[in-house]
Amino acid sequence: MLIANNISKTYENEKIIDKVSLSIKAGEMTVLIGPSGGGKSTLLRILSMLTPPDEGEIILNDNKYKFPLPKNINEISPRPWPELTAVFQQLFLWPHMTLRENIIFPALNILNEEEAKKELDELIELFDMASFIDKYPNETSGGQRQRAAIARALILQPSYIMLDEVTSALDIEQAAKVLDILKKLKKKNISILLITHHVNFAKDVANQIIFLDKGKIIESGGAEILIEPKNKRLKQFLSIIESTS
């Protein structure tokens, strides 16, 4: 279980995240939606412990992280990764390694060579990566890199995975495939935090939907908030999304 209490973050005198509290239960999928600039990516970076918030606390399983961090400490401890991991839209593959090496190298910290190879073979199959797995990132397409980046996270067998618009660079078919894989992860008891514009997917699969605007949670709940939103802002947001998709 991941619990965030009263998280706030200010950039340049502007409150980007404003006293946000939420919890992500084991094996559940939480989807973050909201307008551009509303603070979704910032919140995801905070929850994946990459950006320390100005205030608040995050409880991950048995560990409590209080913010701000004490003076002279600028690293959180214990390190929550890769048990908790994240994938971003800007692909962070290492350019001096092939996609295969990108995936295998971190995996060898938790798996032996044989297991890692077996897992990778399954992922290659699953994401249809055989034709480009031995290429370097700069020799592949955005969609191919995106799939490799997701595979790199999955091979680490995380309990929490946070994904920031990872389907945006994919075509409809590939995006559907990735979403389908996420659906399967849920069954494996992996907790997922997803930022996406696929509202219909959220309606079908998500356990919890959070609408974030101007750094605040405006409305949250199950699929019903997408079907019958109470808040005017959310209504408006959904109608805009509907009219463009």
């Binding site: 994946s48 390190r79 990764w81 908790l84 971003f88 350019p95 001096h96 910290n109 680490l156």
Partner: peptide, 28 residues
């Protein structure tokens, strides 16, 4: 910085990050 972020979330140790990610890229 994103290469370091990737190293963090994939659970690389500090040593691995310096010698397998930072150093080779900087030398190149």
């Amino acid at each position: 910085k994103q290469y370091l972020t990737a190293a963090k979330v994939t659970g690389l140790s500090k040593k691995q990050t310096i010698f397998k990610v930072q150093l080779p890229l900087i030398i190149r």
